[in-house]
Amino acid sequence: MAQVSPKNEGLLLVSRYLVLGLVAAIFLFPLIFMMVSSLKPDAQLLADTSSLRAFLPVGDVSLDNYFAAFDRAPIGRFMLNSVLITVTTVILSIIICSVAAFSFVYLEWTGRNVLLSIILATLIIPFETIAVPLLLLVSRLPWLGLEGMEWGWLNTYRVQIIPWIVDALTVFLFVQYFKDLPRELIEAARAEGASWLAVYRRVVMPLSGPVLATAAILKALKMYNEQYLWPLIVVQDEAHRPIMVGLGYFFQLDVAWGELMAYLTLISIPVLLFYLIMQRAFIASIASTGVKG
């Protein structure tokens, strides 16, 4: 068996870091390009794309694109809308999907396996195929608000939140996690006279930190980064538009590339902050689900 000498070990380590550094650079380049480009006027930005200058803050660098982007679109409003929709959906999703999963795993009731199968089967249905029927549905649904009964959910926050609260993947994650929890704990709590609600609140949920983080991260990324088609068809007023629809403000006859990059940089900040705060949970969640974030 060949021995690895300390010298070879060092070389191996260096080459490993070189490869990892290269891979990291490949993933970082788009972000660096976006941030650097947001500081350049369009003509320079376009001219630099054919060289390494595209990744360097050189030449006529300024924050002008950021000021212009704020003039072009109500960025603060769009970001606030997206954050509000994302946070509300994530919280409601975790509560409702975990309760549903709890019921599927621990409660005995007729048809639960069939219903769970039906819910999981919806994983294979692309949203685009149900977008139009869902649009017709929400445009006619009633709502009891402070001003009394009204019909139709269009141009509201609720139409961007409620249809996204429950999804098969989140239910599935909770079901799988709950199935692996020791049954003895639940049985002991029940033997002590705890209600099912108490078991859910005081036994199961305190043990579910990892799956809560996974479900929250996946849902948050989906709600913040991928909400385009749905708000496009259910929201016609500017006051309720999320960030992804706001992208269109920068695609004029001449695309405002610099402003677009400034906008993208700005709307990436909440995601980057979210990532920095939950870095460990991110890695654990992606490793545990095999889902690319």
């Binding site: 139009v132 649009l135 445009s139 068809i233 016609q236 500017e238 992208l247 269109g248 403000y249 695609f251």
Partner: peptide, 20 residues
Amino acid sequence: ESFPQTSYNDSVVAAALAGN
């Protein structure tokens, strides 16, 4: 009410379906 040009047609068609 103004819309981004890139998505305007889709918004109109969706609104027509929804009767809006």
